[in-house]
């Protein structure tokens, strides 16, 4: 591993994450085989991909928000809200599916806009702004929903249950959204501005970028993508649940996946492919621990360690490649030098 990283052309952080993913797949394959199971059976591949789908949507959105230098902690509540709103609107009728989906996306977009506006215009840090809106939504949910609510018609549930070979339809939708977001980031002016504002807001402003726009766009897309996750959960659960978002710890896990995927937490650098690889690594990890029968408590220990160690693998390299303003003498050598 280490020789691989040192030799040859320098790997980008995305490259390293992909190497980590391949490595985790190999380890997963071996450990699963030791348990007498087949890692590559269609059932297992489908389980792996399903594990990726939901966190995947949220993590793509989180990537955008982090790229622009903010955070989104409201995603679990957006997921829950969308799940109950859409389920209530569908009420088991095929004809209601389209209005329900549009309503869900519109509500989510509105929440995202509010988040973005609080960050961009009121000058509140994304951490606090979205923590706050999350609380606001959770109060609304607690007041109005005492348990599962509404129901999804069969046509809508098929989205969660249909597979093309071993690949769930939900994974294909995820990939579609990922491609669109990548195109947005690479090809549109807003995408470029998003990086610019996340990299250095002041410089971006001085170079004539209206800095609020990328912030609004990133937060809005993050909420909309969380809404897609909520809709997918609705398709899988068949009913809306006011707690489904909090159940999955999607706020912190999505941030972890984004950073694991090589996006710089301070903003301005990173990409969606890395994020998806990060989500995939989590999925493989959960899958293998499930097969091995690791106890629920120890699973958390392993997750915690893997997150830190995996990020550490490339974090030190990243330091050297950062522009001056990010530079931090956090390498061992620098530290020792200073200690003298």
């Amino acid at each position: 591993m280490s020789t691989l990283l040192r030799r040859g052309t320098p790997l980008t952080s995305t490259g390293i994450v992909l190497v980590l993913l391949v490595l985790s797949l190999v380890v997963g394959f071996v450990l699963t085989a030791v348990e007498g199971r087949n890692f590559l059976s269609s059932g297992n591949i489908s389980a792996l991909l399903t594990g990726i789908s939901i966190l995947g949507f949220i993590a793509i959105g989180q990537t955008l928000v982090i790229l622009v230098g903010s955070l989104d902690l409201s995603v679990p509540y957006v997921v829950s809200l969308v799940s109950v709103l859409a389920a209530g609107t569908m009420a088991g009728e095929d004809g209601n599916v389209l209005p329900a989906v549009l309503l869900a996306l519109a509500v989510a977009a509105a929440i995202g806009l509010v988040n973005g506006a609080i960050v961009a215009y009121l000058g509140v840090h994304g951490f606090i702004a979205t923590l706050g809106t999350g609380l606001v939504i959770s109060g609304y949910l607690a007041t109005n929903y005492q348990g599962s609510h509404g129901s999804a018609p069969r046509s809508f549930r098929l989205v969660g249950a249909t597979q093309v070979g071993p690949v769930p339809v939900s994974t294909l939708i995820l990939l579609g959204c990922a491609v669109l977001v990548v195109l947005m980031l690479r090809r549109t002016r807003t995408g470029h501005h998003l990086y610019a504002v996340g990299g250095n807001r002041e410089v971006a402003r001085l170079s004539g970028i209206r800095t609020s726009v990328p912030v609004l766009v990133a937060h809005t897309l993050s909420s909309v993508l969380a809404a897609l996750a909520g809709l997918l959960l609705l398709a899988r659960l068949s009913v809306g649940s006011p707690t489904i978002g909090s159940q999955g710890d999607y706020d912190l896990m999505s941030i972890a996946a984004v950073v694991l995927g090589g996006t710089v937490l301070a903003g301005g650098k990173g990409n969606v492919v890395g994020t998806l690889a990060g989500v995939a690594i989590f999925s493989v990890l959960d899958n293998v621990m499930g097969v091995m029968g690791v106890s629920a408590f120890l699973q958390d220990v392993v997750r915690g360690l893997v997150i830190v160690v995996a990020v550490a693998v490339y974090a030190r390299r990243e330091i050297d490649r950062r522009p001056a303003r990010f530079e931090r003498p956090t390498g061992l050598d620098a530290a020792l030098q200073e200690a003298k």
Partner: peptide, 16 residues
Amino acid sequence: ALAVLAACSTDESIDD
């Protein structure tokens, strides 16, 4: 971008 995303989710609903 929103419109495209919305379209991508509409796929979901008409998917039969």
